[in-house]
């Protein structure tokens, strides 16, 4: 479990990016962290890994302050940053020198992951393209079987086929003891994969809900023409390619449950955060978790 308690962070003299920020991520979920550029997504990821020191508050991983950078905490976390360096050695050597630090590393899982990405087992990391390096690194990250896997923009640099493969192999690796946190702008790449949505914007934590809860309260649908704006259940409508993407309240449980449209949900949260809060937390609208 990851707990961010009253977290405050700012870069030098700048305005705080996070202020008294609270967030809890439970085991057994694939969390999607969404937000605009500069909203503090990567900062939050780094704080969760103990790579930054908060001005106030703390991040606890299984009850231990992650900023202490203890080996027992570090072996439970694997971070796949947006940009990284890999040594110019073979993948086999890379595994030989890095796998011993992760007690649950599985060579079978690595082979399986490589197979999913249609990559050979015998590769030299120095001769790979950026996208291939990313795939190899993610294969290793998943094979380490750490309880917490954090990925910053994992689909950047991947081709279309690889994005499909990425979704497939990530879903296959999930279990109830694991937290996978994915920060991304490319919502379509991951929307079918996520079971929790965390949206940050304008220094606020706008949403932290299970996708099942979201789809139980909201209905996502497309129309060719403009929807009936007089419908009180209609919350959001935006013209897109080939029609309108809409969100409405799902008041009747008998209404058909729809697939989540992350882009529309994100827009709705940014445009009307109070309304979203009211939908998911009608009894306590004043408690707004702030992002700086």
């Amino acid at each position: 479990m990851i707990e961010c308690n009253n977290l405050t962070f700012s870069y030098r003299k700048a305005t705080p990016i996070l202020k008294e920020f609270n967030l809890t991520l439970e085991n057994g979920g694939i969390y999607g962290l969404l937000g605009k550029n500069g909203a503090g997504k990567s900062t939050l990821l780094y704080l969760m890994c103990g790579l930054l020191t908060p001005a106030a508050g703390e991040v606890l991983v299984n009850g231990v302050n992650v900023r202490r950078r203890l080996p027992s905490t570090l072996r439970d976390i694997f971070l796949v940053p947006e940009e990284f360096d890999l040594p110019s050695i073979t993948l086999e050597d890379y595994c030989r020198i890095n796998a011993p630090f992760y007690p649950d590393f599985s060579m079978e899982a690595l082979k399986r992951n490589l197979e999913t990405f249609e990559m050979p087992e015998k590769i030299h990391l120095g001769y790979l393209s950026m996208g291939q390096k990313k795939k190899a690194y993610m294969c290793f990250a998943l094979a380490c079987n750490t309880p917490i896997l954090i990925m910053d923009e994992p689909t950047n640099g991947l081709d279309i086929t690889s994005k499909v493969q990425f979704r497939r192999f990530l879903a296959a690796q999930m279990n109830e003891n694991r937290i996978i946190l994915i920060s991304t702008h490319q919502v379509h790449d991951v929307e079918l994969l996520l079971d929790h949505i965390v949206i940050v914007d304008n220094r606020q934590l706008l949403l932290n809900r299970k996708t099942s809860e979201i789809t139980s309260r909201l209905r996502f649908f497309n129309t060719l023409g403009a929807p009936d704006t007089d419908d009180p259940r209609l919350l959001y409508s935006a013209r897109g390619v080939g029609g309108f993407a809409n969100i409405a309240r799902r008041e009747d449980p008998l209404d058909e449950e729809t697939d989540l449209n992350l882009e529309s949900l994100y827009e709705l949260c940014c445009r009307n955060p109070k309304l979203v809060e009211n939908i998911f937390n009608p009894d306590n609208t004043s408690e707004h978790e702030q992002l700086g």
């Binding site: 080996p71 570090l74 694997f78 971070l79």
Partner: peptide, 14 residues
Amino acid sequence: KKGRITTFMTVGTQ
């Protein structure tokens, strides 16, 4: 930054 991430995420005491 990349080097710092790699160094500090390595499993081991400081």
